[in-house]
Amino acid sequence: MNFDVPKITVLMPAYNAGKYIGEAIESVLQQTFTDFELLIVNDGSTDDTADVIRSFTDPRIVMIHQDNKGVAQALNNGLKYARAPYIARFDADDVCHIERLQLQYDFMISNPDYSIIGSAADYMDMEGTYLFTSTPPALNNEHIQQLEHSVCPFIHSTVFYKKEVILKAGGYNEHAYTYEDHFLWVNILKDQKACNFSQPLIKLRLNPESITIDEKWRPRRFLEIKYSTLKSRNITSHEGNLLAEIGEKQYSPKIKQGSYYALCAKKLLINNYHPQKARLHMARAICVSPLRLDNYLLYTISYLPEKLIAWLHKISSGGHYND
């Protein structure tokens, strides 16, 4: 093993992730594939994130610091310091399946014409309880290339890609507030081969502190800008400032918490039919945001038969704005 030039850089941005990052780091260190560096970009955390990272003594862990500039800049900063030719994206509150790196590395070596590979993911709540399994919207390259611009082809924490391809494309666009990954894919996939594994390779944690809230809670103006920029594959600094302004207004514990409970309820109802558990989460969402009528609607729908709920979801998902 050569620690000077690792085969893989696991790139992990971290902001106030002290509650979960220890488990995330452990899941990387326990990988069956061992020739990697774990590059953690501490994005101006104000909690004990840095202390938790420093509590590990494994020489493969590298921590760099930056002022709180957001995930896109943290990723771009990490790409500059990454030593390996392959990047495995990973978030500080998620958990890697033990063979994740080995499977993705072996595929990339055996299929050098591919530049990006992702996978399905098991979603869990903030306590680590399983919620549902999410399969990407397309698995093979042909189907990925046929996706509408509005559909994100990858679950970001699962992706494994060639660093040079991302750097050549200019990295993550820092104006694409909360969808910097989706914006990157629409700009590079036309020239690159990609695929997704059907099996889950990570456990992805939903939690109220997450930067991304359920899209159903975004105002229409935010979604209009998002999908128009994805369609044009271009975003201006003015549009980025508008997105950030809208997003920062929503960045409150109340909205985050309400969105979290509503999203857990929706997934428990639609993806993993547990109506009683879903109603418990909806009741919490209603307590947080009693004026949101869609919370009451979802609570009522939870009493319908599973097949009818699935049919209603299929119809409602046919519009422009996707989950």
Rank of each mutant, 00 (worst) to 15 (best):
R284Y: 02
I8C: 01
L312T: 05
Y251M: 12
C195Q: 08
Q276V: 11
D58Q: 10
Q31Y: 07
L293C: 03
T9W: 00
N196G: 06
N68L: 02
V186E: 07
V288Q: 07
E239S: 09
P153H: 04
T135R: 14
A24W: 00
L243S: 12
S210L: 05
S232E: 14
V62C: 08
Y172E: 07
P200D: 02
P208T: 04
N241G: 03
T57Y: 11
Q276T: 13
Q145S: 05
S55Q: 06
I155N: 07
S55T: 07
I202T: 12
Y273V: 08
E23M: 03
G44C: 03
E248K: 10
L189N: 05
Y86S: 03
N207F: 02
T46R: 13
A84G: 08
L204K: 10
G170Y: 03
A310W: 02
E306T: 11
G319M: 03
A244V: 04
N207H: 11
L11W: 04
D35F: 02
E209Y: 03
W185H: 06
Q104K: 13
S115W: 01
I270C: 07
K226V: 09
Y273G: 03
K267R: 14
K231H: 13
R220I: 10
M12D: 09
S134E: 15
A262P: 06
N196Y: 02
Q250S: 12
R218T: 05
L243A: 09
A285K: 06
Q73L: 14
G258R: 05
R83A: 08
V288H: 00
G22P: 13
Y251R: 13
S115G: 14
Y20V: 08
I116V: 15
Y299L: 12
G170A: 04
A84L: 05
S237D: 06
Q31H: 10
A92D: 15
L304N: 06
L139A: 08
F222I: 02
L29S: 09
G18F: 00
D58V: 05
A24I: 07
D191T: 11
Q145V: 00
I202K: 04
Y123R: 11
L201M: 13
H182Y: 03
L101H: 12
I301N: 02
W311V: 10
L269G: 13
I61Q: 12
P85N: 09
S55H: 03
G78V: 14
N111Y: 00
P136D: 04
W185D: 05
